[in-house]
Amino acid sequence: MTQFDPAPVVAALRSVTSPTRPLPLHEPVFAGREWDYVKDCLDTGWVSSVGAYVDRFERMLSQRAGDAHAVAVVNGTAALHVALMLAGVRTGDEVLVPALTFVATANAVAYCGALPHFVDSGPATLGLDPEALAAWLDETAERRDGACVNRRTGRRIAAVVPMHVFGHPVDMDGLAAVAGPRGIPIVEDAAESLGSLCRGRPTGGLGTIGTFSFNGNKIITAGGGGAIITADADLARRARHLTTTAKTAHPWAYEHDCVGFNYRLPNLNAALGCAQLEQLDGFIAAKRSLAAAYREALAGIPGVTFVDEPEGCRSIYWLNAVLVPDAAARDALLAATHAEGLLTRPAWGLMHRQPMYDGCPRAPLPVAESLADRLVCLPSGVTAGSGRSA
């Protein structure tokens, strides 16, 4: 095992961020009209799940997602849950999910009564690898009665969920070439990639249906919140119905035609989201500038590779990250950076290693396991690099 020295990395990170306090991984910035819009909600009394800001937020999101329909909901996990239902995922199905993802991706599958089926990542994107997926499906799946079925378990493979890790787009064209002929809908987890482009097209609107998150640590925040994105007007209508307790339209009667969910985003949160969306382009520019500074500062340090955007894509670099030689080097870098007030973190624990999912079907996962052992995420807030000299 090669000895890894974290000191040059720490020095490089300090040269970029010039921290005067403990520097978190990510934090929100409120520099626009947040106070004005939230106060307007309070002044008018429109603070709950309907209101002008909800409508405006959805229109703004629709434009950012390539003029698809947008339905605002309480958080990204709720968005993914309903998106999977709309894609046809049912109890007893399997859903193809990257092993390297945040737990919400797998949890949303479980909420549907389905099983996550874990697949490997690609080294260039960190996300789901279409080539590895194609090879795995050739080995384990077959078409049966119009559906793609796992021949080992007999369960239907009902959807595939690519997640754009740290804002870096998955190869969506490659994935469509694998999923389309097999009849597998693509439910796009774009929680971390609002504003990223995949070959000129915005993430979130590239699958059958997609989702965003506006948690406090995302590039924009509504203090929570999420959205369902689709180009299909009927799917959007059904999403709106399901997330509003499946209440049938009537001026006063409370009648519901199926089991629905109380998932609609409050107007108060949407107001915050509108003010944040107005600043999104500036946030993206700041994050890409920070990524460029990190890339330059880290160049040439032995054993360190900066995680760059995939070829043909524009990433928002929601989180900047580096790869180091092994788990021992990762842990040494985490300890050294935290000692200096740079609050780095490793990748998520792989999904197949979580106790509730360790018995789920999975492909070989050599790339995901290697990435998880070697990834270190760097402070990546919009203002993280603002202390450096111009």
Results as ranks from 00 to 15, higher is better:
154 G>P: 05
249 A>G: 09
352 H>G: 03
257 D>A: 14
116 P>G: 14
153 T>I: 08
208 T>L: 15
212 F>L: 14
76 G>V: 12
164 H>N: 05
66 G>D: 02
95 V>T: 12
46 W>K: 08
230 T>Y: 09
291 A>V: 01
242 L>N: 08
267 N>I: 01
275 A>P: 01
258 C>E: 15
28 P>N: 03
305 T>C: 04
94 E>Q: 15
203 T>N: 13
41 C>G: 08
159 A>T: 01
359 G>V: 01
14 R>P: 00
237 R>P: 03
290 L>A: 10
214 F>D: 10
87 A>D: 11
222 A>L: 07
279 Q>V: 00
285 A>S: 12
2 T>N: 09
173 D>I: 07
127 G>R: 07
344 T>A: 15
60 M>E: 15
382 V>I: 15
155 R>E: 05
244 T>M: 08
333 L>K: 04
149 V>S: 00
299 A>Y: 04
37 Y>G: 00
339 A>F: 05
42 L>I: 12
154 G>N: 11
158 A>W: 10
147 A>K: 00
287 K>G: 07
320 N>W: 03
246 A>F: 10
90 R>N: 13
301 I>N: 10
288 R>V: 06
278 E>M: 05
225 G>A: 07
78 A>Q: 09
96 L>G: 12
2 T>I: 13
169 P>R: 04
161 V>A: 08
185 P>W: 11
250 H>G: 10
211 T>N: 09
178 V>E: 13
23 L>N: 05
107 N>G: 13
377 C>E: 14
226 G>V: 01
17 T>L: 03
321 A>Y: 04
130 P>A: 00
250 H>C: 14
237 R>N: 08
133 L>S: 02
78 A>T: 06
314 R>E: 09
189 D>Q: 10
334 L>V: 12
274 C>M: 01
45 G>Y: 00
235 L>W: 06
189 D>W: 09
142 E>C: 05
264 R>N: 07
15 S>P: 01
298 L>I: 01
274 C>Y: 02
89 V>Y: 13
183 G>R: 12
5 D>W: 07
308 D>P: 00
274 C>S: 07
307 V>S: 04
126 L>S: 13
288 R>K: 09
360 C>L: 04
7 A>D: 13
82 V>C: 10
14 R>T: 12
369 E>G: 09
367 V>Q: 12
292 A>W: 02
133 L>Y: 02
43 D>K: 06
254 Y>H: 14
163 M>N: 13
270 A>G: 11
56 R>L: 15
311 E>W: 02
110 A>Y: 13
174 G>W: 04
289 S>P: 03
78 A>R: 14
138 D>Y: 02
328 A>Y: 03
336 A>D: 07
